[in-house]
């Protein structure tokens, strides 16, 4: 399973081919880029921007698209006004621009069809992006793998790919969606909700949790409290 990556990871030019809104704050950016190695669902890329004086800024973004042969990847970036790189994407980036990126990166928070399931995915806010890549890949390559996404957002407007997820839940017999809204009398992920997810899915074979730090830490603890083997749980976090 583990193959040491002996080859260097080069910076590459990627052309921005499409921008579309995903939520009020998040946009989808599709890049044409020819990676020299296959993408795994859950991986990310590093993006590097260069100012005219040579100053550079780098950030990492999860890949939202399923691994594919079409030579493109989709990133979803929240347009944080104070963000040096995300702010650039929000206000400056246009279709046709060339951006430097390298990847795919990351070998821990990845799911391959041969890993099987049941697959429990838990996402908070924009942490759903790498999980979306897994769900898209699963639907295309291993639709028989039982899967459940527990997705926590502040309000319905924050939910990324809400319509796609609803359609998948309706049309894919082995995928279930549990969406919880935390704001305005809503409910945070709690022990009962974890219990329900485990009951509906069955004993998970792989668990991936992604979101803000507090969310991921709390959810991972709830799963361990519920008797899940901690070694099945992979986490990816942002913020502190």
């Amino acid at each position: 399973m583990i193959e040491p990556t002996a080859r260097p990871l080069p910076w590459q030019s990627a052309t921005l081919t499409a921008i579309r809104p995903v939520t009020g704050r998040v946009k989808s950016y599709r890049f044409q880029v020819a990676f020299d190695r296959p993408v795994l669902a859950g991986q990310h890329v590093d993006v590097r921007l260069t100012a005219p004086d040579g100053y550079q800024a780098q950030r990492s973004y999860s890949i939202a698209s399923a691994p594919s042969q079409d030579g493109t990847i989709e990133l979803m970036i929240e347009g944080l006004p104070e963000g040096e790189v995300s702010g650039f994407f929000e206000t400056v980036a246009e279709v046709g621009d060339t951006i430097e990126l390298r990847g795919p990166i990351g070998g821990a928070f990845v799911w391959r069809p041969e890993d099987g399931g049941p697959l429990l995915l838990v996402g908070g806010g924009s942490g759903v992006v790498p999980l979306l890549a897994m769900l898209r890949h699963r639907a295309a390559a291993a639709p028989e793998v039982p899967s459940l996404l527990l997705y926590s957002v502040r309000d319905a407007g924050e939910a990324i790919a809400a319509e796609e997820l609803a359609v998948r839940a309706r049309d894919e017999p082995h995928f279930a969606l549990m969406l919880t809204l935390t704001r305005a009398g809503g409910r945070r992920v709690d022990a009962d909700m974890i219990g329900e997810a485990l009951h509906r899915l069955g004993q998970p074979g792989h668990i991936y949790i992604c979101g803000g730090n507090a969310f991921v830490g709390r959810t991972a603890d709830l799963l361990v409290d519920a008797g899940v083997d901690p070694r099945l749980i992979r986490t990816e976090r942002f913020g502190s």
Binding site: R48, L49, T50, A51, P52, D53, G54, Y55, Q56, A57, Q58, E84, F88, V92, A93, D97, T98, I99, E100, S240
Partner: peptide, 26 residues
């Protein structure tokens, strides 16, 4: 080659000299 329209927010000199390449201060 520079990225069209990117100027960045270069941190002050005192910060920059303590930042390894590609890093930002948090």
């Amino acid at each position: 080659m520079s990225t069209r329209g990117f100027t960045g927010r270069k941190p002050p000199e005192a910060t920059r000299e303590r930042l390894p390449p590609g890093q930002y201060l948090t």
